[in-house]
């Protein structure tokens, strides 16, 4: 599913590499927490898996694609096969909940018929039925993140990348979101989640990969923060 080998990422103008010879294997159906302090390299690793960036050296394979050599016109097609959520939700402020979710289907050319079926389904799945016509500004943070999750999974992706999805949410709301992500994982979607949230990691007892100064210092199944 994901295979990262000897990846080093050196940003221009910084003395120490953001990632230093990192290797990581993630199997289909896994649920992996990436933990570590700010600047430990979590975000750099997420960016590489999303092909927002390429490593300075080493190889990155995700969903069977070699992300180092992939031609740029194929990148959109690669991204259609995975879902992403972020700390800041990244919703379109002038579109309603349903339009935000439908947007990700429209841009990849799904038919209106398919969209009209899939959007209410996925909104029900994330617990937002009845709020389809609201604007993001009219929703709470937890609800906005549910919209983002709905948008990420409406394509039924094999992989969900979540970059601190609970970073802006209070503990109770975070638990709801995590329950949702666990459900998505149980349906067979591989989940890679970068987080600072000690409580969540300790409670879920999943595989934990800890980064420090750009190196993996711990990779433990059923671990805690």
């Amino acid at each position: 599913m994901i295979r990262i080998e000897n990846v080093t990422k050196q940003y221009k103008g910084s003395a120490r590499p953001a990632l230093n010879s990192v290797s990581l294997d993630i199997e289909k159906g896994d649920f992996v927490f990436l933990v570590g302090t700010s600047g430990s390299g979590k975000s750099s690793l997420m960016r590489l898996m999303l092909r927002e960036d390429v490593p300075t050296s080493g190889s990155v394979h995700v969903l069977g694609e070699n992300l180092v050599g992939i031609p740029s016109r194929r990148i959109p097609y690669f991204r259609r096969r995975l879902g992403v959520v972020f700390q800041d939700f990244r919703l379109l402020p002038n579109k309603t909940v349903a339009q935000n979710v439908a947007f990700s289907l429209e841009v990849i050319g799904k038919s209106q018929g398919f969209i009209q079926e899939a959007v209410p389904d996925v909104l029900r799945l994330v617990g937002l039925d009845g709020k389809a016509d609201r604007l993001p500004s009219e929703l709470s943070g937890g609800e906005q993140q549910r919209v983002a999750l709905a948008r990420a999974i409406v394509n039924k992706p094999a992989l969900l990348l979540a970059d601190e999805p609970t970073g802006n949410l209070d503990p109770a709301t975070s638990q709801d979101i995590m329950a949702l992500i666990e459900r998505i994982n149980l349906n067979g979607t591989t989940v890679v989640m970068a987080t600072h949230d000690r409580g969540i990691v300790d409670r879920l007892k999943k595989r934990v990969v800890e980064l420090k100064h750009g190196e993996i210092i711990r990779d433990e199944v059923g671990g805690t923060y």
Binding site: R73, R79, R81, R90, L92, F103, S104, I108
Partner: peptide
């Protein structure tokens, strides 16, 4: 640009963007 970023994220092709 925010919209463009989101479009790229959900896999819109360059042509579509």
């Amino acid at each position: 640009r925010r919209e463009l970023g989101i479009m790229r994220l959900v896999g819109a092709s360059n042509f579509y963007i």
